[in-house]
Amino acid sequence: MSGTSAVANDGDERTNGHDGDRKLAAGEGATGSADDADDTETHQRGVDRSPATFSASLSLLAGLFSVLGSGLGVLTAAAPGFAGLLVLAAGLYRGSRRAVTGGGVVLLGGVVFAGVGGGPPAGLLLGALGALLAWDYGENAITMGEQLGRAADTRRAELFHAAASLGVGVVGSGVVYGIYLGASGGQPVTALVFLLLAVVLLAGVLSE
């Protein structure tokens, strides 16, 4: 039993799950890098490594909330949102990180659409939070599936992960929303510029 780390380029798909195009190979199931687009894993007969169902369901639920948020004020914004939800669902079904990320991006696109159309701030916040959580849960479902498979009991870890992300997201957006409410009235463009500058500087440092 040897586990090695694999590198999956987010752009390049790891074949997984139901496409049935998997190569059966002798020996251990650990492969090295998954950089090649045509990488076929050496997982053998039997072990179902499709995404964990619990996290996948939570992901869809969060995606639904995102659509709800962006459709709250601007009904037409629900259309791209639903498209994102479909992409997300397809990604979860096929175990594709790329599709799940794509679904999240389209969900965010729905939020932008709603924002430009003048949607209420609370709805937009819900839309963005839902989209990020949908991606987070979806990616976790895929990784959990690849590492442990469907047959394992992974519920508790998934629940913990989901709850932690939800807690962080809710508290974070609560604080942001609180500040927004406190500053209701004018639109201090100065504040915006300062905050933006802060984000650019900090994000640049933190993501190194």
């Binding site: 039993m1 040897s2 586990g3 090695t4 780390s5 694999a6 590198v7 999956a8 380029n9 987010d10 752009g11 002798a26 020996g27 251990e28 199931g29 650990a30 492969t31 950089d35 997982h43 053998q44 007969r45 039997g46 072990v47 990180r97 990320t101 990784t143 690849e146 590492q147 442990l148 047959a151 994000a203 993501s207």
Partner: peptide, 26 residues
């Protein structure tokens, strides 16, 4: 730029073997 960094990011995670299956013989 960040979105681009995301696209090019190498997502790393640990792989696991298949201990529940028997070893394979030719």
């Amino acid at each position: 730029r960040y979105a681009g960094a995301r696209r090019g990011a190498d997502l790393e995670f640990t792989e696991t073997g298949d201990p529940e299956l028997r070893y394979e013989v030719p």
